[in-house]
């Protein structure tokens, strides 16, 4: 096998195996994925709009809100708005990644994206969670003063159960994504 043309013909004579999926399946699958990604973005925008609207109302009424409700609500909704905005930016960034770039450029582009995603999954997520919890925590003494004891205990129990459950869920999800991101970054680096 000392002629390059022979090597080429050896290569091109490989017969593709019988395809399981036809071209119509491919188009349908692509359309399904596009719709699903559009839906995710749409939901993200709806959530962001709602939290941003509530944040706007809080900011407008901030001077008239008594301590500690003003800063507490502000911290809680600021953290949710910030996290939702960054998630939407990340979704749009992902959609705009240009897969048709030459491999080296694509690699650099996707590495930048995954590193940003890693920062979002770790630092940003936990900072915003901390801000949310801090916002709520500073309002607890006020709840105690303004609410009837039974209501206060109800709210407190609900929060003491829901916040740790949500935090565990978030940490688990973040760990899973982080593991995947570290694998991709190690592969591309």
């Amino acid at each position: 096998m000392n002629n390059f043309n022979n090597i080429q013909s050896l290569w091109s004579n490989q017969e593709p195996q019988k395809q399981n999926k036809n071209v119509d399946y491919i188009k349908a699958e692509a359309k399904k994925r596009m719709q699903s990604s559009g839906r995710r973005l749409g939901w993200g925008i709806i959530i962001l709009s709602i939290t941003a609207a509530i944040l706007g109302i809080i900011i407008c009424y901030l001077p008239s809100l008594k301590w500690p409700f003003g800063p507490g609500l502000l911290a809680m909704f600021l953290s949710v708005t910030l996290r939702s905005s960054l998630e939407i930016i990340s979704m749009i960034w992902k959609q705009r990644l240009n897969i048709a770039l030459p491999t080296q450029q694509y690699k650099c582009q996707i590495l930048r994206y995954y590193r940003a995603r890693k920062a979002l999954t770790t630092t940003v997520t936990f900072s915003t969670l901390a801000l949310y919890v801090a916002g709520f925590s500073i309002m607890i003494p006020a709840f105690y003063s303004y609410m009837q004891t039974l209501y206060f205990i109800g709210v407190l129990v609900f929060i003491l159960v829901s916040v740790p459950v949500f935090s565990i869920f978030l940490i688990k999800k973040s760990k899973e994504e982080l593991k995947e991101l570290n694998e991709i970054i190690a592969l591309l680096d």
Partner: peptide
């Protein structure tokens, strides 16, 4: 198959 799905998705580029 994945390549052709991407081709359809990214045809605008």
């Amino acid at each position: 198959q994945e390549v052709f799905i991407k081709l359809w998705e990214k045809q605008n580029s």
